[in-house]
């Protein structure tokens, strides 16, 4: 039997023992009470600018090239490797970090790296997220949080490797603490360590780690097994995007 009164007692007794984080990390000070509203407004505004910037980045290749990233809307043939997806595609190139990747024509760059850059992860040098969602859909899903990856998006991260091997990176990410499936593959003729693990009961992380000298390139996406993504995105779409990466 599981008498409800005794369960309640057990829940209260045990859960009340769980440690709290330091007060400084959660107690809203009076002086800061009003700040989150304005801060949030600033972050929303900045995110909108970011979204508009990302869209113009896709559309205006010369401007993007000036920043070290280049996006072209030329057919995939100009890039050595990738496969064209669903009949049309765009190519995103990062000259600064030495890679190119093709995304379906109806996808776009959701550059969420600038505001959240290095905030929670000092090893992070660059991060670009690719999505099939419209800016409004993405904003609704993720809000002002920039340390999230939206399910069914693909992200490319470049990190300082700090001497650690791909396997260590996978372990640090969550592989091992959770039931993790690992393997090896080749992406653009470079060996890649592949790991996949559940991040919640319904979401699963897939990550590809490629050692590039003193840097670590990580491609990742999150799926919801048994469901289809937005705008008809499937796991196969995401795999194709990952497989399209071309490394300099």
């Amino acid at each position: 039997m599981l008498p409800e009164l005794s369960i309640e007692r057990v829940f209260r007794r045990e859960l009340d023992d769980l440690p709290l984080p330091p007060e400084s990390s959660w107690v809203p000070a009076r002086a800061t009470v009003r700040r989150p509203v304005s801060l949030t407004a600033i972050v929303i505004a900045a995110t909108l600018v970011l979204v508009l910037g990302a869209v113009s980045l896709v559309r205006e290749a010369p401007d993007a090239a000036a920043t070290g990233r280049r996006v072209t809307t030329t057919p995939l043939l100009v890039i050595p490797r990738p496969t064209c997806l669903r009949g049309g595609c765009n190519v995103y190139r990062s000259d600064a970090f030495g890679y190119g990747i093709s995304i379906p024509g109806d996808w776009r760059v959701q550059d969420s790296s600038r505001l959240g850059f290095g905030r929670s992860d000092p090893s992070l040098l660059d991060r670009v997220e690719f999505t099939s969602r419209t800016p409004e859909e993405w904003q609704l899903l993720v809000g002002v949080r920039l340390d999230l990856i939206a399910p069914w998006d693909v992200s490319v991260e470049v990190h300082d490797r700090n001497g650690f091997a791909a396997m260590d990176w996978a372990r640090s990410d969550g592989c091992g603490r959770n039931a993790c499936v690992v393997g090896e593959t080749t992406l653009s003729q470079s060996p890649a360590y592949v790991a996949s693990w559940p991040v919640t009961s319904s979401l699963r992380m897939h990550a590809y780690y490629i050692e590039r000298g003193d840097r670590m390139l990580i491609l990742r996406y999150v799926t919801e097994p048994g469901s289809e993504g937005p705008h008809g995105v499937t796991e196969q779409t995401l795999e194709q995007i990952v497989g399209s990466i071309a490394l300099n």
Binding site: D121, D147, L148, I149, R171, S172, V199
Partner: peptide, 21 residues
């Protein structure tokens, strides 16, 4: 609901690698 919306990006931490997370 907020926790379900997106997946927090992992960040590299030596402590995690060493199992002191």
């Amino acid at each position: 609901r907020s926790a379900r919306r997106g997946v927090r990006l992992p960040s590299f931490s030596l402590e995690r690698v060493r199992g002191r997370s």
